Amino acid sequence: MTRTVYVNGEYLPETEAKVSIFDRGFLMADGVYEVTSVLDGKLIDFDGHAVRLQRSLDELEMQSPISKEDLLEVHRELVRLNGVEEGMIYLQITRGAPDDRDFVFPDPETTAPTIVLFTQNKPGLADNPAAKKGMKVISIEDIRWGRRDIKTVQLLYPSMGKMMAKKAGADDAWMIQDGFVTEGTSNNAYIVKGNKIITRAKSNDILHGITRAAVLRFAEEAQMEVEERNFTIDEAREADEAFITSASTFVMPVVEIDGAKLGDGVPGRVAPRLREIYLDESRKAAI
């Protein structure tokens, strides 16, 4: 079925959607994005994604072409038009399409931002079988630019990291900087030692995950101990458990790092419980 997408104020069949070849998102990766999950036909953590979107725009001195209220209505309309019960909505805003290619930012008075949204229908997202068996990761050097807290469309290296993992027979890669884990290619990374959940603290080095914030809040409400600090890849390999969080995976156990099994090589106690809590609480708060 042909999807209906949203481009610069219009709902269009995906086959008719067009963006200029001079768009700076295409030429310069000059854009930001967000991905919001849909469960039971409702939006998960929309407010958090909207706030982070505005932060990313502000950090790049980019104007928003749409209000938060209108953005919510676009999300809901796309869910309705495409009949999405479980899946994601991808949103991208770029600095727009000036008359020609130039490194200098175009005048915002004459060049409007480009905004694009589309849905991805993913039945079974909440009941993903991978959550029951866990995933395998490898470690790779983190060579991305220094502002990973801005959710930009500069995704070439994360894409390469996923391909490195695939070639190694793994599911994803954790990136390493100065011996410490920063994050996964498209997710935040955690280890569990004893009863303590350990994850890198927020900074310019990692994306400030919306799912991360919710999961850490739920963990503390469930009387789980959380420590935000750097941890090494060697420490990760010796952990009792590990997991990732993201809008598309929620909470996903990690059972192997660089070929070393964690614990018994199957999901432990903490990650599955956090996934259960996250899904339950998120469904209650969905809009």
Rank of each mutant, 00 (worst) to 15 (best):
residue 152 T to E: 04
residue 119 T to L: 01
residue 156 L to W: 04
residue 173 A to L: 08
residue 122 K to M: 15
residue 172 D to F: 01
residue 173 A to F: 08
residue 126 A to V: 11
residue 125 L to A: 14
residue 176 I to M: 12
residue 161 G to Q: 04
residue 167 K to E: 15
residue 158 P to T: 01
residue 122 K to Q: 14
residue 164 M to I: 01
residue 158 P to A: 05
residue 121 N to P: 03
residue 131 A to F: 13
residue 120 Q to T: 10
residue 148 R to A: 15
residue 164 M to S: 11
residue 143 I to S: 10
residue 119 T to A: 11
residue 142 D to V: 06
residue 145 W to R: 07
residue 165 A to E: 04
residue 168 A to P: 05
residue 159 S to D: 00
residue 184 G to F: 09
residue 157 Y to F: 05
residue 147 R to D: 11
residue 173 A to K: 00
residue 162 K to H: 12
residue 163 M to N: 09
residue 169 G to T: 07
residue 141 E to T: 11
residue 154 Q to C: 14
residue 152 T to S: 15
residue 180 F to V: 09
residue 144 R to Y: 06
residue 131 A to I: 07
residue 140 I to P: 03
residue 168 A to K: 02
residue 170 A to W: 06
residue 184 G to S: 08
residue 179 G to H: 02
residue 157 Y to G: 00
residue 165 A to P: 09
residue 130 A to P: 02
residue 129 P to Y: 01
residue 181 V to N: 05
residue 171 D to F: 04
residue 135 M to P: 05
residue 136 K to F: 00
residue 154 Q to H: 14
residue 143 I to G: 00
residue 146 G to I: 10
residue 170 A to N: 09
residue 153 V to Y: 05
residue 180 F to P: 03
residue 142 D to L: 04
residue 140 I to E: 14
residue 170 A to G: 07
residue 182 T to L: 06
residue 131 A to H: 12
residue 163 M to D: 08
residue 173 A to Y: 02
residue 176 I to D: 10
residue 170 A to V: 01
residue 156 L to E: 02
residue 120 Q to P: 03
residue 142 D to R: 08
residue 130 A to L: 14
residue 171 D to A: 03
residue 148 R to C: 15
residue 148 R to M: 13
residue 131 A to V: 09
residue 132 K to A: 15
residue 178 D to E: 14
residue 145 W to D: 06
residue 141 E to V: 10
residue 164 M to L: 12
residue 156 L to M: 11
residue 137 V to S: 00
residue 167 K to L: 13
residue 159 S to W: 09
residue 163 M to W: 11
residue 167 K to N: 11
residue 170 A to Q: 06
residue 158 P to Y: 00
residue 124 G to Y: 00
residue 151 K to W: 05
residue 154 Q to E: 07
residue 153 V to P: 06
residue 139 S to E: 04
residue 149 D to M: 01
residue 119 T to H: 00
residue 130 A to N: 09
residue 127 D to S: 14
residue 121 N to G: 03
